[in-house]
Computed example of a mutant assay.
Amino acid sequence: MVLDGMRNEAYERAITRAIEIKRGLGAKKVNVLDIGAGSGILSLMADRAGADRVIGAEIGQHMCDVAAEAVVMNGYGAKCLMINEDVRRIDAAAKPDGTPPDLEQKANVCVFEVPMAATVYCQPIQMRTERVLGFDMAQANQWRWRPESQWKALGCVTEVFAFDFHEAEANMQAAEVALHMTAHTGGTCNAVAFWFTLQLDEETELHTSPYTDKNWKT
Results as ranks from 00 to 15, higher is better:
residue 80 C to W: 02
residue 80 C to T: 08
residue 80 C to I: 07
residue 81 L to S: 15
residue 81 L to F: 11
residue 81 L to G: 11
residue 82 M to A: 00
residue 82 M to H: 04
residue 83 I to N: 00
residue 83 I to V: 09
residue 83 I to R: 00
residue 85 E to L: 10
residue 85 E to H: 13
residue 85 E to K: 15
residue 85 E to T: 03
residue 87 V to F: 15
residue 91 D to R: 15
residue 91 D to F: 09
residue 91 D to Y: 08
residue 92 A to D: 10
residue 92 A to W: 14
residue 93 A to Q: 11
residue 93 A to K: 12
residue 94 A to D: 04
residue 95 K to H: 15
residue 96 P to T: 05
residue 97 D to Y: 06
residue 97 D to A: 01
residue 97 D to N: 15
residue 98 G to Q: 06
residue 99 T to Q: 12
residue 99 T to N: 11
residue 99 T to M: 11
residue 99 T to K: 13
residue 100 P to A: 12
residue 100 P to W: 07
residue 100 P to H: 12
residue 100 P to F: 02
residue 100 P to V: 11
residue 101 P to T: 07
residue 102 D to R: 07
residue 102 D to L: 04
residue 102 D to W: 09
residue 102 D to I: 06
residue 103 L to Y: 02
residue 103 L to Q: 06
residue 104 E to G: 14
residue 104 E to N: 12
residue 104 E to A: 12
residue 104 E to P: 13
residue 105 Q to K: 10
residue 105 Q to W: 03
residue 106 K to A: 13
residue 107 A to T: 10
residue 107 A to F: 07
residue 107 A to W: 02
residue 107 A to Q: 06
residue 107 A to L: 07
residue 108 N to F: 10
residue 108 N to Y: 11
residue 109 V to I: 08
residue 109 V to L: 04
residue 109 V to Y: 01
residue 109 V to A: 07
residue 110 C to S: 07
residue 110 C to R: 08
residue 110 C to D: 12
residue 110 C to A: 04
residue 111 V to A: 02
residue 111 V to F: 00
residue 111 V to S: 00
residue 112 F to Y: 02
residue 112 F to V: 04
residue 112 F to G: 05
residue 113 E to T: 15
residue 113 E to I: 11
residue 113 E to S: 09
residue 113 E to Y: 04
residue 113 E to C: 09
residue 114 V to T: 10
residue 114 V to N: 04
residue 114 V to D: 04
residue 116 M to D: 13
residue 116 M to H: 15
residue 118 A to Q: 15
residue 119 T to K: 15
residue 120 V to T: 05
residue 120 V to P: 08
residue 120 V to H: 07
residue 122 C to M: 01
residue 122 C to Y: 00
residue 122 C to D: 05
residue 124 P to G: 01
residue 125 I to F: 00
residue 125 I to P: 02
residue 125 I to Y: 02
residue 126 Q to M: 13
residue 126 Q to K: 08
residue 127 M to W: 03
residue 127 M to V: 11
residue 128 R to V: 15
residue 129 T to R: 02
residue 129 T to L: 00
residue 129 T to G: 01
residue 130 E to K: 08
residue 130 E to W: 07
residue 130 E to F: 08
residue 131 R to W: 08
residue 131 R to M: 10
residue 132 V to T: 10
residue 132 V to Q: 03
residue 132 V to Y: 10
residue 133 L to F: 13
residue 133 L to R: 03
residue 133 L to S: 14
residue 133 L to P: 03
residue 133 L to M: 14
